[in-house]
Amino acid sequence: MIRRLVVACACLALATLGTGGAAIAADLARGEVLFHYCTQCHGDAGGGSLLARAPAIAGLGEWYLQSQLRKFQSGDRGTHPDDVGGLRMHPMSRLLRSEEDLQAVAAYVASLTPSRPEPVVEGGDSARGAVLYTLCATCHGPEGAGIQAFNAPALRTTNDWYLLAALAKYKVGVRGSNPRNGTAMLMRGMAMQLSDEQAMKDVVAHIMTFADSK
């Protein structure tokens, strides 16, 4: 009887040791399971849905995904009364019950093939946008791939309607007026440089040309 117990204990100990090596793989597997929460709005492949106002997130930087999910959870993003999209995402971020879950889903979303959504916004002039984009390139990179050192996310893999909506939100302060969200405040200052909606459409049209060249 005692011998059997000892053997059982040894087996258990071995089993727990064994899982250590598989931690990273398990992370992605867990992330894939958790991602089922997200597909309803962000699409099966994370390609975004205009109907749900949820942008393409597939292939965004893991650091950016983590930072935004944390901001949604704490309410630093997505709790302005006029932020229709943000108010929807804010409760969803709380489906991630632990830091491990948050990291797992961020890792999984980052590992997805970046999407290249079809442009739907009309009336933008990408040539004029190219001039405006010189400012943006400092932080978001010349090809809109994002630069982690500046906390600036990739722009070319998300939907043009979302980019336009985000810029408009920054400009009026629906995003970027919360003092606890420093990166958004910074970006708000940049959106202020775009004089009107036409300028926003132009720069967004230019960003969409990056997606083509990729």
Binding site: H80, D83, V174, G176, S177, P179, R180, A184
Partner: peptide
């Protein structure tokens, strides 16, 4: 506005 929580 500086101290107001969850303004965004």
């Amino acid at each position: 506005t500086r101290t107001r929580p969850a303004e965004e």
